[in-house]
Amino acid sequence: MNLFRLAGDMTHLVSVVVLLLKIHTIKSCAGVSLKTQELYALVFAARYLDLFVHFVSLYNTVMKLVFLASSFSIVWYMRKHKIVRRTYDREHDTFRHHFIVLPCLVLALLINERFTFREVMWAFSIYLEAVAILPQLVLLQRTRNIDNLTGQYVFFLGAYRVLYILNWIYRYFTEPHFVHWISWIAGIVQTVLYADFFYYYIISWKNNVKLELPA
């Protein structure tokens, strides 16, 4: 476990837990895309199938449980909680996310490390995570308001991806045979998606103006 990966996991943890706590505290999910949250819950469900059959470490197991619990809790709050669900911006969060689930599933069937159920599900979760943020970015563009709830969420998610790329570079140079093309390519695609948002986020932060994404 290197520092980049630990920092990446912690940043990822912060992004999800902070979002959950904020939704729980202010009883509102304004600006949050339910589609993205559902995609993330699916990513964790598909990726952590080996939770009880493949023990890596206590840290690994605890983090998987926290990610599963927090992502499904956020989806529950946005769909079922009597107060929070009313603040969900249904008419703007219209990204047809099955248009990205199906191609990811097909791609996972074609490109995987081994053609077994768990490996295909793992590859599916990697591809899906790369594009899961799209509905959220589309919603931010549409509503053009980025209150700190979603701005910080996307920012932390982007930071986690950058840290993971640094982790892969570090592991590539320190561990022989550490080659994971599937994670690397999908991870780079995912990080590029955030680059655009980062650019506007940092400009708005520097000029101390409200973040406006171009239409």
């Binding site: 990966r5 996991d9 990822h12 080996d50 493949h54 890596v56 470490s57 690994n60 983090m63 998987k64 990610f67 490390e113 081994r114 793992w122 993971y164 982790n167 045979h177 550490f178 080659v179 994971h180 994670s183």
Partner: peptide, 10 residues
Amino acid sequence: GCLDAPKDEL
């Protein structure tokens, strides 16, 4: 081999 390296990352 490198293909079936354990999935030790989250």
